[in-house]
């Protein structure tokens, strides 16, 4: 049986004459997926489309088989933590979440229990009875997250969830995401912080100017970018570095080698990873001591730079 997936089929959304997103086709499997892109690229638009807050002008969306036009079914299994920083003026953290849960049909006691659990997970129990309007920015972020997870959704859509969180809570939240991903849930995150995206995501969706630039696992995406040669950092024992470099130069798939000042490492750029691996193998078997080989650009930073940065 196929995995439940978030499917976008040729989605376009216009804001008057301005194009929001253009012919977006996505198939997002369960796990942690990050939406990465510059400001105004359409990340929030995609998330709003996913949750039925806005409707596409063209195309079809299926969230684990349910259309966003059916909020009764969709919202039960979806939690959305928006970036909109407003909360009702009358709400304390606790009542904010409880009221939301009442709409799901839970009885009052169950709603309160769930709300308390969610607040505990996000370490907000101390401030639970204060008005949300009096929270600091980070606390408001957390209470929105708490509201999104309180009803144990299968699908989480989180708009910049780690924004404004201190490092401890950040780490705990990331662990939470990983736990959910492990249970087979969808966790769709949008983020600017590329190192984190690297760290936590299984899949990445790069979006720029309303168009999807790349989609899939990070390594796979990197593999498909042929214009930019792969970069590796090779560390050797002191005496061997120049020798290794000279041998590598002989290979025709190597485009550039930069030797490090400490003469113990080098940055190698190669067009063909397979051949590079075999070449390194041969060199090592010939007796040269190679300490480590690390890919230098199989991360989202590089992907961003290659695919989006140049288009600016």
């Amino acid at each position: 049986m196929t995995q439940p997936a978030v499917v976008f089929e040729e989605i376009s959304k216009f804001y008057g004459e301005v194009l929001g997103v253009n012919r977006v086709t996505l198939n997002i499997p369960p796990g942690i997926t990050s939406l990465v892109g510059p400001n105004g690229s359409g990340k929030t638009t995609l998330m709003n489309l996913m949750t039925g807050l806005i409707f596409p002008d063209h195309g079809r969306i299926l969230m684990r088989g349910i259309s966003p036009r059916d909020p009764e079914a969709l919202m039960r299994m979806t939690g959305y933590a928006t970036q909109y920083d407003t909360a009702p003026r009358w709400a304390t953290g606790f009542t904010f979440i409880t009221t939301g849960l009442l709409l799901f049909g839970y009885g009052r006691s169950e709603a309160e229990e769930r709300a308390w659990k969610a607040l505990e997970r996000l370490s907000l129990t101390d401030a639970a009875n204060r008005k949300v309007a009096a929270y600091s920015k980070g606390m408001r972020q957390r209470v929105r997250l708490a509201q999104a997870i309180a009803h144990d959704p299968e699908l989480l859509v989180l708009d910049e969830p780690l924004n404004g969180l201190d490092p401890l809570v950040r780490a705990e939240t990331i662990d939470m995401f990983r736990a959910w991903a492990a249970e087979g849930k969808h966790v769709i995150i949008s983020s600017h912080v590329l190192q984190e995206v690297d760290l936590i995501s299984d899949q990445v969706v790069l979006i720029a100017n309303g168009m999807i630039v790349a989609e899939g696992k990070i390594r796979k995406v990197r593999d498909e970018i042929e214009e930019h040669p792969s970069q590796y950092i090779v560390r050797c024992r002191e005496s061997d570095a120049s020798g290794v470099a000279a041998l590598l130069f002989g290979e025709d798939h190597i485009t550039e080698i930069k030797l490090n000042d400490d003469r113990m490492g080098m940055l190698v750029m190669t067009r063909d990873r397979e051949q590079f691996a075999r070449a390194l193998g041969r060199i090592a078997l010939d007796g040269h001591r190679i300490e480590s080989v690390v890919p230098a650009d199989e991360n989202v930073d590089a992907l961003y730079e290659y695919l989006i940065g140049g288009e600016r």
Partner: peptide
């Protein structure tokens, strides 16, 4: 949006 995000 809070209301629209409710399962109703």
């Amino acid at each position: 949006h809070f209301w629209f995000l409710a399962p109703a």
